[in-house]
Design a protein around this nucleic acid. Structure first.
Length: 203
DNA sequence: TCGGAGATGGTC
DNA sequence: ACCATCTCCGAA
């Protein structure tokens, strides 16, 4: 399980969004590992994308991380209640990121279950197990990712994304992004990517 | 199984 | 006023 390099994130955002599929998000807290396979992503590219928080070179307190060096986490509060986690892409100075929309839980499901539902994984019916991390707000809740993680370097030793060299034989689907109807022409960009047939893809 | 409404607070 | 979401509840 090799950690993704800075160069991986520094590339074109659509390429990174596609290539993040199948990779594994790792978050070590205390002595426990939380791991989940990335099965759904969305690209946000400030230069041409009215759905992006950083559209039109809008550098604010919130969006400055998107313009920073690649391979860092951009975490923001949505609807006053939930967090969404992005990975910053492209060279420093370019505003862009990839939203992590869904994970397939691989390790640490007991803690994820506690974080999400306040009870043990063994107690969860199959339906709830699927719902641990099959959405951008859900996966942050499961992993305990909050605004405190905004700006975190994903090349650190406790929060990173790595390859899974034995997992490569899968199909990739794409579609319009979710809940960006306000974004005029950008709402029709097919910048959502997912692993075909994976049970943990949202909706 | 589906759709609508409410929760809730930072941003601009 | 808006929002890159989720859960609950009632109707079918």
């Amino acid at each position: 399980m090799k950690k993704l390099s800075r160069k991986f994130y520094e590339r074109d955002t659509l390429t990174v969004a596609r290539e993040l599929l199948g990779k594994v998000l790792v978050y070590k807290q205390e002595d426990r590992f939380l791991k989940g396979r990335i099965v759904e992503t969305e690209a946000y590219i400030g230069a041409i994308d009215k759905a992006a928080h950083c559209y039109n070179q809008r550098v604010t307190k919130r969006t400055e991380v998107m313009f920073g060096p690649p391979g860092h986490a951009y975490v923001y509060l949505i609807y006053g209640m939930y967090y969404c986690m992005n990975v910053v892409t492209e060279p420093e100075g370019v505003g862009a990121a990839v939203l992590i929309r869904a994970l397939e839980p691989l390790e640490g499901m007991e803690l994820m279950s506690r974080n999400r539902f306040g009870k043990g994984y063994e107690e969860l019916p199959q339906k709830k197990r699927i719902q641990l991390s099959n959405g951008p707000g859900k996966l942050c809740m499961a992993f305990g990712i909050t605004k405190a993680n905004n700006g975190n370097d994903l090349l650190s030793d406790h929060f990173f994304i790595c390859e899974d060299e034995h997992f490569h034989d899968f199909g990739i689907g794409c579609s319009k992004r979710i809940n960006v109807d306000y974004a005029e022409e950008a709402k029709d960009f097919e910048w959502r990517f997912f692993i075909k047939g994976n049970a943990y893809v949202s909706r």
